[in-house]
Design a protein around this nucleic acid. Structure first.
Lengths: 109, 109
DNA sequence: CCGTTAGTTCTGAAATTCCGAACTATGGGA
DNA sequence: TCCCATAGTTCGGAATTTCAGAACTAACGG
């Protein structure tokens, strides 16, 4: 399989990040990846609350996160390894990701 | 005219804020309001770059910002006065608005 | 070569966004 | 009072985006 497209950090646009994280499911997926540093298999994150996100939706969520520049995906054998690009993004948009993840964490209280 | 609906600060959800500001036009409108403290008339913000946002689009942008809890709108005579709810939101989601506005400001470089 | 697992693409239905046209609300004259 | 101008809202249809099931592909393990 051909390598997936990832935007260079300088091509990352804030509107893409906000749009990607404005969906609670995607925000939850990203939070898990950011927290774990590296998450293998999409199935690992497919449960959100008591719902299960369908595979096809999950695939497009990952695509949105990837194209927004939030994660980096590599295929390892049959599964996918996903890394959050937190350090890169924080260099370009300081405090943005932390503030967003904190806001979501504060929400459910 | 009946008073417009504004969510209580505790009902403000982060996904609504991110969604509202994930549109560059709306983000630009909000940035102007936040910077000015208070903006009268929608026409004041209707120019974004070299484009002019149509009135009906502008109206729905204001509605999205208002319902997300980002601004407070009051009618004064024939025109509208818009205030950014920065302090309230910063109390609930610390650093969020500042990080987003800074990110947009850094983008165009 | 076959089966299994992991993920992607296709496709059509549903929801959302966009913007022009028509409408409403408020205030200022004459 | 009636009419006009201004500021903004609502309606409606076209275009775009999102969602999720079904079919497909890619990689590995016998």
């Amino acid at each position: 399989m051909r390598p997936l497209f990832h935007p260079a950090i300088d091509d990352v646009r804030p509107e893409a990040i906000l749009h990607a994280l404005s969906d609670p499911d995607r925000a939850s997926i990203f939070a898990k990846i950011a927290q774990a540093g590296c998450v293998e298999t999409c199935a690992t994150v497919s449960a959100v609350g008591d719902r299960v996100i369908p595979k096809s939706s999950l695939s497009s969520h990952f695509k949105v996160l990837r194209e927004a520049g939030l994660i980096r995906c590599e295929r390892h054998g049959v599964e996918m390894r996903n890394h959050a690009r937190c350090a890169e993004i924080d260099g370009r948009f300081p405090g943005l990701l932390a503030a967003i993840l904190t806001a979501y964490a504060a929400r459910s209280v």
